[in-house]
Each structure stands twice: as structure tokens, then as C-alpha cells.
Amino acid sequence: MAPSEDLVCCPVCDALHEIHGVTDGKRLRCVRCNTVIAVDRPEAIVRIVVLASTSLVLMFIVIFFPFLELRNGVFDSRASVFETAMAFNRGVMAPLAIAVTLFVIVLPVSRLVCFIWALGPLSFDRPPLPGAAFTLRLAETLRPWAMAEIFMIGVAVALVKLGDLATLAMGPAFWSFAAIVFITALQDTQLSKYSIWTALDTASRR
């Protein structure tokens, strides 16, 4: 069988499908494993770019502003995400410092930058930037390693553990972190490999 642009494989189970355009708002699922292969939402690209840019701005607040404040009579302590990551930077714990920095700051930020780089020009009807294909692939690879939302649950657990030790207050970063988690979840629902890559293809040909 000759490969053509209408032939699409399911990324999960390798079943072949023939796609002749997807009708508006319809989802195309794999006949065998039911994975969503294509979703036609023309506005998806713009949405992804907008959501990624919003998260990026919020991420800046998250990293440098305190997200938890601890008061215990005389003592007062506050921690930003950046400081949390650096808490491990002594001796044996250094690898952990690097891991936390990667999972909570570096990888989520890189993923957002990748999305904006690859899809940003498309939302303005411009040809894609060089390396768009690479950055889009990278964004997909980074997906499981960006753990901002898990960090949020960690904050909640830490709150309970410290509850009787001191008074705790949430800093501005906490709320923007909460917003990012919500936005990222929203952004991931817009993703469909086939649709995004087809959009990138069409844009490159212009």
C-alpha cells in the first residue's frame, strides 16, 4: 500500500485509517482501541497559544514570589518555588535539587515555550518558524515530565503537616500556580496529534 496524506495510523495501536477531512467539531476515534485520532477544532491552535502564553506569564510569578508563608510567633519564613528547589542543594541531596527544579520549573516552562514557538506564528497566519516540527515533538515528549500540578498537591499535604506547628498563609504564587494547573489541563484537552501536525503542514506549504 502506498503512503498518502489521507492515510493515518493510530499512534497507540498502529491501525490504519483513511481520513478525508474531519467535519467540524467531530472527533475521530480509532476503530480498534478507541483513542481519539483527530479532532477538528479550527480554533484549537489559537487556544493552545493563548493558554500557553498565559501560563508563561503566571509561571514567572510562581517562580519568584513566595507561595507559602509560615508564621510562628517570633519566626517568620516564606518560600518561593525557586527556594524550595534549592533546599536540597547540599551534598547527597544535590541530585534532588536538580530533579525538583527540572520537574516543577524548567520542564513546564520549556514545554510552554515549545508550544508558543511551534504554533505561535500559525495563529497569526504566518509560516512556522524554523525548528517548529522539532519543538512540537519536544513538547509532546516533555508532557509526562512536567509536574506542576503534582507539586500543588504536595503543597496541600505540606499545609496539613505544618498545620499545628505554625500559622500558614498562601502567597500570591500559590494562586497563580493553581491557575496554571487549571490552564494546562484545559490546554491538553485541545491537543490532537493529527490535527496539530496537519495544521503545521498546511502552514509550511504556504
Binding site: S77, A79, E83, A85, A87, V100, V155, K161, L162
Partner: peptide
């Protein structure tokens, strides 16, 4: 792991 990191920082 994150809980430990947060506690240690605070």
C-alpha cells in the same frame, strides 16, 4: 518528594 522539598524549604 515534593512535600519533603516544601517542608525542608519552609
Amino acid at each position: 518528594v515534593f512535600v519533603v522539598a516544601i517542608l525542608a524549604a519552609l
